[in-house]
Design a protein around this nucleic acid. Structure first.
Lengths: 156, 156
DNA sequence: TTAACTCGGATAACCTTAGTCCGATATAAT
DNA sequence: ATTATATCGGACTAAGGTTATCCGAGTTAA
């Protein structure tokens, strides 16, 4: 159920790296790939995605690279996962729910559909309570229970 | 990150079905497979697993089938997932942590290992706070925030 | 004796993820 | 200008895991 995609891990490592750079200093995909032993091509694509999402900004050409564009304290794990992994529903059929509920022949008899949606929303609350900054801190931290962000703070 | 295995879904459906049977009345794998449109073979194996874990008991032969063996109010989602999906760590490398931490060449430079473990444990608290009975209720329920089970109540 | 069951292994089909390879474009430094 | 270092982005292959299917064997009530 819970395993992160590799790209998500790579993204987290990259963001962590960037968050430690001096302000205005860029890091290239190559630099990070070599330092952490990550496959360059994939890391590059991942950074692209982060850029499209507005989490980082990029500079092309020699001496180019990536910089953080948003404060990681203001990005929730929920938002990040949605970005990196697409739909975060726990059940396959829930993804299609918005399209057509009656795709599933056994819908009327289905026992788990309702509760899975409930679980989804509860999980989302949980994930929204974790800030990316908590996950990208340098030292092995104990995660402490934080107040969930207010609606205004949550972008997505 | 979050998608459940199919077998986990099947298991949930089966448990839900069993929880609605009158006490002492058994349901067969065939019966459930037909009713919910699930692949018989897989459902059978799933039930086997639930039996080995002590969640249900089985009776062989004609008129046999499965019955609940434990109160679903006393089984946490955490325990159930561990049972159905094995290791529930969010990162692949964390599974090997207990074996040998230094498998990963980049361990010393790794930025996410510590925090991923923190995330793991926080997630576990979350999952331990959800009882299977909440997920197997008949009607599409809103999940309410419950008190986590006490240590005594949590078996695993 | 038969039909309806659980039990359990081996194997095949499928699908997603992860990784690779390629070329194009942009820009700073020489 | 030319070169080296970057981002950008598509197409493709490889690998691995999940899901499903196909067996046969053992149990038990009718």
């Amino acid at each position: 159920m819970l395993k992160l995609n590799r790209t998500t891990e790579y993204g987290l490592i990259a963001l962590s790296h960037l968050s430690q750079k001096a302000l205005g200093e860029a890091a290239s995909a190559r630099e990070m790939a070599d330092l952490y032993g990550l496959p360059f091509d994939i890391l590059a694509k991942t950074l692209q995605r982060l850029k499209d999402a507005g989490l980082v900004q990029s500079a092309q050409g020699a001496r180019g690279g990536y910089r953080l564009q948003r404060e990681l304290t203001q990005v929730t794990l929920s938002e990040f996962l949605e970005l990196m992994e697409g739909n975060t529903s726990v059940v396959a059929c829930a993804e299609r729910l918005s399209d057509s509920l009656s795709d599933c022949e056994f819908h009327s008899r289905c026992r788990i559909q309702g509760m899975m949606r409930g679980l989804d929303s509860r999980l989302k609350v949980f994930l929204s309570g974790i800030r990316l900054s908590e996950l990208t801190a340098t030292s092995p931290l104990e995660l402490v229970q934080l107040q969930p962000l207010t609606q205004k703070q949550v972008h997505s």
